[in-house]
Design a protein around this nucleic acid. Structure first.
Lengths: 215, 215
DNA sequence: CGAATAGTGTCTGTGAGACAATATTTA
DNA sequence: TAAATATTGTCTCACAGACACTATTCG
């Protein structure tokens, strides 16, 4: 039984857009906040490369999150990154192939889990190459979202393997936020969201630091 | 020239979802925070009414904001309300008519501008009737969003006609936030975002209050 | 020992919450 | 004058920023 409206038409009788799920996966590489890019399909050689965020069209019966996750796996070989929805980009002329909406997503992962293929690259978010479509705007949304999270709690995306020292945590936050943080203020604001383990870590010179877990 | 992918297929050769733009328009009515609802198409008599948020399918060449605005006009007779995007609802079975994504929007308007038609109604957001689809979840997103705005600045949606007294502003914020506010604290937090006019307003008993504009 | 890092003490400024006092008006 | 509302004074608490001091380790 197909639904028909008051004009006797079904949903399929009206024009529909293609809907893409594109994802900005952020990570730390070379002490910088980077985003995962893939080569566009038309690009054959890396030198004349054109870059984009991994994405795909949503399939019937699938959620946007499923589509975004599938694109990460198929287009970039990335698994295990949780994605979240950001915003729909809908400018009518944004895609030269036709009428395409892009539902932007973001996720965060460790760099080792991302450099899986010849056709991917990690680019610093403040030095992006030209990106296809409006993918640069998606990256900006993603960076904003992740920074808001990192202002409020210690490594919410679990980039650090626990246990970790407060120094390790602070250096990570400095990279994500793109600004220096006062060691003592940072320590005190994060301390009540951490659990001390009692164990210590010796690293090079200096007094050993206590290791903590997320509270 | 139609775009074709590596299999020689165009975008139209793949199944696409219908995309709806649904909008929760919030307002103050009867000293409560309310949302604008419309009768569903199938509902004929108001007694056996089934309610939903005004919405429509996006048309080709149109943005989601355009579609949401058009739906407000055509389904509820409402014009002049600015809408903003909230979230995409994409559960595969959310619409019994088929594969439909809903891009939720919200807006805020004065009640006088909303009660324009026989087929609309304002329902308190904490006492909603049963709504079609997942429209109750959209209302919850909208309320959340508007409350966040009202916590940070004085009547950002301009429900009050300027100039206004701080008391009028506080009573409005109390209704939007659903909680009582301390008059002195509220005054001091809002004062630096307001401009005094020098004029005063006498209302019933008590000392006249100064009138302010948004800074 | 000196450099480097970890961690604590403490002062200051800011801002919210709370309560009280003062000011101005109408019934 | 009493009640109602507006406005200001002020105390407290919590917390961030900033700087200085102590603690522990390695070279």
């Amino acid at each position: 039984m197909i639904y028909r409206d008051s004009h006797g038409k079904s949903l399929e009788d009206y024009p529909r857009p293609s809907v893409a799920a594109d994802t900005a996966v952020l990570t730390i590489a070379g002490d910088r906040l980077c985003v995962l890019l893939t080569l566009t399909n038309d690009a054959t050689r890396r030198e004349e490369a054109e870059w984009r965020l991994p994405g795909t069209f949503i399939h019937s019966g699938e959620t946007l999150r499923d589509a975004a996750t599938r694109a990460l796996r198929d287009k970039a070989g990335v698994v295990g990154v949780e994605v979240r929805q950001l915003h729909v980009f809908d400018a009518p002329q944004r895609d030269d192939r036709g009428w395409v909406l892009s539902v932007a997503h973001y996720g965060v992962g460790r760099a080792e889990a991302l450099m899986t293929s010849e056709r991917v690259r990690l680019a610093p978010v403040d030095e992006l190459p030209p990106l296809k479509y409006d993918h640069a705007a998606i990256v900006a949304f993603a960076v904003d979202s992740v920074r808001t999270d990192y202002r409020r709690s210690p490594d919410p995306e679990r980039l650090l393997l626990a246990p970790f020292t407060i120094r390790q945590l602070r250096l990570l936050h400095e990279i994500v936020l793109g600004e220096q943080l006062l060691p003592d203020t940072f320590r005190r604001t994060m301390l009540d969201k951490l659990t001390p383990t009692g164990a210590q870590l010796r690293e090079g010179r200096g007094r050993p630091a206590e290791l903590y877990l997320r509270a």
